[in-house]
Write a protein that binds this DNA or RNA. Structure first.
Lengths: 245, 245
DNA sequence: GTCAATGCTTTGTCAGGACATATTGACGTA
DNA sequence: TACGTCAATATGTCCTGACAAAGCATTGAC
């Protein structure tokens, strides 16, 4: 039912057909044209309607199944199950989330310098001690209240932060613009009490802090970034949508 | 290089061929037979060697690419990038993790009862107030130290906990055995100070607590479970591997 | 000796077909 | 009425074939 959705294909576009279909399907779901519970037409009918082969149509649907937005049942059909799905890597990008929520935010760069990695840091970045790394300390405010203390380290060989506009945009956005694609990230989320420096910077009296440690890898498996952040737990929490396959 | 890996296929098995290949490839990577950096043979050669078609071989490789263990580059080949990858849903299953680490653990069921859902709980489980739900409170110990207070709610209509052996195995294991497949989960991780009851049960003096709130959905998009847990942050942290596609 | 053009390798995309299997509902029979 | 059988339907699996596009190395010209 509800095949009022209109999908247009551009065969001269470099964007793969299955991706064009997937994008327009996802948009339809996010915008509510297809609501949770709605059944979409079967693969063969859809493929015919769009002038595509069944494998291509399947591939389009599969990407949305992997995102957790559609569910297929053999002998039954394909159904919409979920509208809003959160992007994966970064768990949640603090910068983007706050921007999306319309919160006024501000970032203060406390330190940005090149230095040689000590043993512990080299281990995190999988370098040999002594190699040069960027060290970046930032303090992020929301509505003029300090929210998070962000400490990051990146190998100089792979990233250039010299001209990064880190006060006005996120670190990950800078990496994306530099053509660096983060593929895998290992994260560890915990909690701790604030130490003296953190209490001072974050103006958090006895508020427990949420900690996040992350190592991010690019396509080649090289470490791009190691960060350890602390957040005021009264102002922030991590949200994520997980999909099991 | 390093095609000493031996993959055996059973065409009479109900397990799909691409899945058999993927499983054995994953095992080889996890066991270090294929180490990060190793290149595997190209799709066509592998397919021929196993007597499979290229699409089937591709499908096998794709599942490992989606898990973040392999990376493909057009014109180059396929490489191993990551050995250890953590399972997805549950972020991390406390019970399984502790068992894998060889820690001695014990679970105490504080409460298990059927009751009718109040307004707040009904909203979490997407029921109408008054419908019956299971309420489960557990206290989990590691090495005889209290680690976490687990509070869960499940709709009576979808799950039966009457005979669940919740002292000796995890809740998720019980659900799996009952044939319930969790497909999507929304989680929220934060931190807070312990209240009086939590301080008493967890014997945590001034240790901040890590909180986890989760809503889990099955294939049909129905809510199977809502849980809010607290963990002693000096003994536990969430670990997760994220893959971007 | 340097650099650009070219060709090879490998994955990416797309088509079309065949059979298997799970689910549902209709039908027929006890 | 109750139960089992069967057919229709939809997705799951697997195959063959073809061309496109990106990376890399080799070749060739200057």
């Amino acid at each position: 039912m509800s095949d009022s959705l209109s999908i247009t294909l551009d065969r001269s576009s470099p964007v793969p057909l299955y991706h064009q279909v997937a994008q327009q399907l996802e948009l339809a779901i996010r915008q509510g044209v297809l609501a949770p519970g709605d059944k979409i037409d079967n693969e063969i009918a859809l493929a015919n309607a769009l002038g595509l082969s069944r494998p291509t149509m399947r591939q389009a649907i599969q990407t949305l199944v992997d995102k957790g937005m559609l569910v297929r049942k053999r002998g039954v059909g394909t159904q919409v199950v979920h509208g809003k799905i959160r992007r994966n890597v970064e768990l949640t990008s603090l910068y983007d989330d706050l921007a999306a929520a319309g919160q006024q935010q501000r970032t203060e760069v406390l330190a940005l310098q090149r230095e040689s990695a000590d043993e512990a840091l080299a281990a995190h970045l999988r370098l040999t001690p002594g190699e040069e790394v960027w060290t970046l300390h930032r303090l992020r405010f929301v509505n003029d209240e300090p929210l998070a203390l962000l400490r990051n380290h990146l190998p100089v060989a792979l990233v250039d932060l010299a001209d990064a506009e880190l006060e006005t945009s996120g670190l990950y956005e800078h990496l994306r613009r530099a053509g660096i694609h983060l593929r895998v990230a290992e994260q560890r989320i915990g909690a701790k009490s604030a130490d003296e420096q953190e209490r001072e910077l974050l103006a958090a009296g006895d508020v427990p802090l949420l900690t996040m440690e992350r190592t991010a890898f690019n396509d080649a498996g090289a470490v791009i970034e190691y960060g350890h952040h602390v957040y005021r737990s009264d102002l922030y929490a991590f949200e994520i949508t997980l999909v099991d396959r």
